[in-house]
Amino acid sequence: MTKIQEQFGFQKPPHGLFYSFDRALRFELGGEGFGSDRPIRRFVQAHERANTISQTLFENSSEVFVLLSSYGTEKPKKKRLKSLKLCGIKRREIQYLCREPQQDAEHIAAFGNDIFRHWEVAKLEDRRAISEILWLGIASEMAIEPSFRGSLSAYLVDLSNGLMLHVYDDRGMDIIATNEVPLKKLFTTYRSWLLEYDLPQMTAMFGGGTQ
């Protein structure tokens, strides 16, 4: 986590990545009229968009890591990372980093113990795993399999170039960067996919170019 601190200014990615970093983009993935009545079409659109954007973002990356977050008791459940096997990532390739107590007073009062956020990381030896990880994240709250289950969430990180991507579910995806150049490229190329609600903020940062 020290390298993440040095590059991004925080040790652990906060919730709402877009709102926690100055240089950031937020993309809409599965929206535009595809609701719960068309889950397959919604999922396909979300995965295609996430794939396309991630390929552009990491096109010059020599190394990409997956940073994993999950919640649980002080000792994490063994099966929490089972879905990573489907991406060709073996358990021995995943390094446990730390646990972070949440100081949840209600949980402590009810159960006598706290909730912990657990962090793990793995280097992606096969870049095709990026698409598979995006699949698992997008499907996590849909009737689509396979998917991340429980509280597992993934951040794709290029430490050398200061890039981080996080799919929070089928609705959208946040990207931050320490250099505004890659974000300007994404802003211009995929502007029609940016979340309209936050578009004024992104336009103020990266300009009013059209797709």
Rank of each mutant, 00 (worst) to 15 (best):
residue 163 L to E: 04
residue 29 L to N: 04
residue 66 V to C: 08
residue 191 R to V: 02
residue 104 D to P: 07
residue 41 R to P: 07
residue 63 E to S: 11
residue 154 A to C: 08
residue 44 V to H: 07
residue 119 W to V: 06
residue 184 K to A: 10
residue 116 F to S: 06
residue 71 Y to T: 01
residue 33 G to W: 03
residue 200 P to N: 01
residue 2 T to E: 15
residue 15 H to I: 04
residue 37 D to H: 04
residue 10 F to C: 07
residue 63 E to W: 00
residue 12 K to L: 08
residue 131 S to V: 07
residue 41 R to D: 13
residue 26 R to V: 02
residue 37 D to P: 00
residue 12 K to N: 11
residue 156 L to S: 09
residue 153 S to W: 07
residue 42 R to I: 02
residue 59 E to K: 13
residue 210 T to I: 09
residue 160 S to E: 15
residue 156 L to M: 08
residue 177 A to R: 14
residue 145 E to T: 12
residue 142 M to E: 15
residue 7 Q to M: 09
residue 105 A to V: 07
residue 26 R to L: 05
residue 15 H to K: 12
residue 20 S to E: 06
residue 1 M to L: 03
residue 144 I to M: 12
residue 148 F to W: 14
residue 113 N to K: 13
residue 75 K to G: 04
residue 205 M to R: 15
residue 204 A to R: 09
residue 62 S to D: 13
residue 44 V to C: 05
residue 38 R to I: 01
residue 18 F to C: 03
residue 63 E to Q: 07
residue 36 S to Q: 08
residue 38 R to D: 11
residue 10 F to P: 05
residue 136 L to F: 06
residue 85 K to W: 08
residue 128 R to K: 15
residue 40 I to G: 02
residue 61 S to N: 02
residue 207 G to T: 09
residue 49 R to G: 00
residue 183 L to S: 05
residue 48 E to S: 03
residue 130 I to V: 12
residue 43 F to T: 05
residue 132 E to I: 11
residue 197 Y to A: 11
residue 62 S to C: 02
residue 145 E to Q: 14
residue 46 A to F: 03
residue 178 T to I: 09
residue 90 K to F: 02
residue 163 L to Y: 14
residue 34 F to P: 10
residue 191 R to I: 02
residue 24 A to Q: 02
residue 204 A to I: 02
residue 127 R to E: 06
residue 68 L to G: 10
residue 75 K to A: 09
residue 104 D to R: 11
residue 139 A to D: 02
residue 18 F to D: 04
residue 28 E to Q: 12
residue 55 Q to T: 05
residue 162 G to L: 00
residue 104 D to E: 06
residue 177 A to Y: 05
residue 95 Q to D: 10
residue 12 K to T: 11
residue 79 K to A: 08
residue 112 G to Y: 00
residue 118 H to W: 09
residue 73 T to A: 11
